[in-house]
């Protein structure tokens, strides 16, 4: 594959479309190997891997690479769930149907445990999958609504680092100092 397609100054009207077609046919069945932080290798179809902006830009920099792509910040468990999500998403690319897409997204998060959701967020963030990140952030917000502070702590698996005096003071401030936002 020529690197000219990546370089606007060298691209001519004739060469650009032809390289694109060639790229598509050549890569239609192509698989990409991705290595997670816990050293597991995932063989992922290219169309799915291109959903990950981070991986996509890796290939834009080195189009002909056949190397295994290391994903140092991505553990295998949440990664497999992210792949599951992206496979579903691709179906809606060819055939956009917002209601079906929403339904599919809500089913996806419904089946996940709190831990799954929280683990997927940094992965979606690292791989720059915007749709997934939105879906996950919304799901997290939904699950911590109407819950106690203790619940939210255990949801995120976070230790309380306030002293009991600090916490008591804040709770008092919350009760007496301000109401929350009204809608914009």
């Amino acid at each position: 594959m020529s690197s000219s397609a990546e370089n606007p100054t060298l691209t001519t009207e004739i060469t650009k479309p032809s390289t694109e077609i060639a790229t598509e046919t050549a890569q239609s069945a192509k698989k990409i190997n991705l290595k997670t932080s816990d050293d597991q290798i995932f063989e992922v179809e290219e169309s799915v891997a291109m959903e990950f902006a981070t991986v996509k830009s890796f290939f834009e920099d080195a189009p002909s690479s056949t190397d295994t792509v290391p994903l140092p910040n991505v553990p295998a468990k949440p990664f497999s769930q992210v792949i599951e999500f992206c496979k579903e998403q691709i179906k809606f690319k060819a055939n956009p149907d917002e209601t079906e897409k929403k339904k599919s997204n809500s089913e996806f998060v419904k089946e996940k445990t709190n831990e799954d959701l929280v683990e997927m967020i940094p992965v979606a963030n690292y791989l720059e999958i915007k749709d997934l990140l939105d879906v996950l952030n919304q799901a997290v917000a939904d699950r911590i609504q109407n819950r106690s502070v203790e619940y939210v702590r255990s949801f995120f698996g976070i230790d309380n680092d306030f002293t009991s005096e600090e916490e008591a003071l804040l709770r008092e401030e919350h009760a007496w100092a301000f109401e929350d936002v009204d809608e914009d």
Partner: peptide, 21 residues
């Protein structure tokens, strides 16, 4: 962004801010 989605109940933001420093 998570905070953007928490907007219906005033108490939720308060709980959120009490989780940790």
């Amino acid at each position: 962004t998570i905070l953007d989605f928490i907007d219906t109940n005033p108490l939720d933001r308060k709980s959120f801010s009490l989780v940790c420093k």
